[in-house]
């Protein structure tokens, strides 16, 4: 078990030293700053624009970072054969996958934290003080982190059997499809017979990102129910576990060329 921790720590260290990451974070923070300018043009909705634009930037850049470091760090290990030296030690393959996941999760958490600081700074600049409803923004950020965890586990799953480019395409497609997951389930409910079986399977297998996006709600200072928070958290954990188990099952059998 301690080896999982070592692998996670090393992954985290490797990831946070990459300069590309800082560029992306800087860009997201910049976008939150730009929200201030946009907000000034339209009267009375500065706060709304800052929250909407800021959280959207956090979410989208988070997605890009999650997919690229998720895939990059694993495929690089295979391509550059560092994996060979790791696996020739008393390290089990599942320990490698699980360790990678936790390392990446830690990286994403730290990234989101810095981007969130940017959003709150912009918010403070516009409204001069925080109010109690701003706490819901934290919930929205938490949901974004959950979304990133799911994506990251999917990135790991795909890179356990596919090339980096294809993995990125798969992961990004699933992000887009997952954002329409609710529509997909509505659609599945309306179909019959074989189509129904297929559509329902697909609808329940794709990650459900619709319920994780509450940016619009918190921008309008609407509260979020604890039930939703609990369900979303449990769902994200279950889904990530599922993807990682899949990755482990594939990776255990994989020939490392």
């Amino acid at each position: 078990m301690s080896r999982v921790v070592y692998i996670a720590a090393n992954t985290f260290r490797e990831a946070v030293r990459d300069r590309v990451l800082y560029n992306l974070i800087a860009f997201a923070v910049l976008l939150s700053g730009a929200a201030i300018l946009v907000g000034q043009i339209s009267i009375d909705i500065e706060r709304l624009v800052v929250v909407n634009l800021g959280l959207t930037a956090v979410s989208l850049f988070g997605v890009v970072i999650a997919i690229f470091i998720g895939i990059g760090l694993v495929s690089k290990e295979m391509e550059k054969r560092t994996l060979y030296t790791v696996l020739s030690r008393p390290v089990r393959r599942w320990e490698f996958i699980v360790g990678k996941f936790f390392g990446l999760a830690g990286t994403l958490l730290v990234n989101t934290f810095f981007m969130a600081v940017g959003v709150f700074a912009a918010l403070l600049y516009v409204s001069h003080k925080f109010q109690s409803s701003d706490a819901w923004i934290l919930v929205a950020l938490f949901f974004i982190v959950l979304q990133l965890l799911i994506l990251c586990s999917l990135a790991l799953l795909f890179s356990s059997f596919s090339s980096p480019l294809l993995s990125a395409v798969f992961a990004f497609s699933l992000f887009v499809i997952g954002s329409f997951a609710e529509d997909l389930r509505l659609f599945a409910r309306m179909t019959r017979g074989l189509t129904h079986g297929l559509a329902a399977t697909a609808a329940y297998l794709v990650p459900n990102f619709s319920a994780l996006n509450v940016i619009g709600q918190v921008a309008h200072e609407q509260p979020i129910s604890w039930h939703l928070i609990a369900c979303n958290t449990a769902y994200a954990l279950a889904y990530s576990t599922m993807a990682i188990c899949g990755a482990v099952l594939i990776f255990e059998r994989r020939n490392l060329k």
Binding site: A211, H227, A234, Y235, A238
Partner: peptide
């Protein structure tokens, strides 16, 4: 976890 996520999705759908 698959069973769990499907059940949770159903709950989420009900809630929404």
């Amino acid at each position: 976890s698959l069973a769990g996520s499907v059940l949770l999705l159903r709950r989420l759908d009900q809630a929404r």
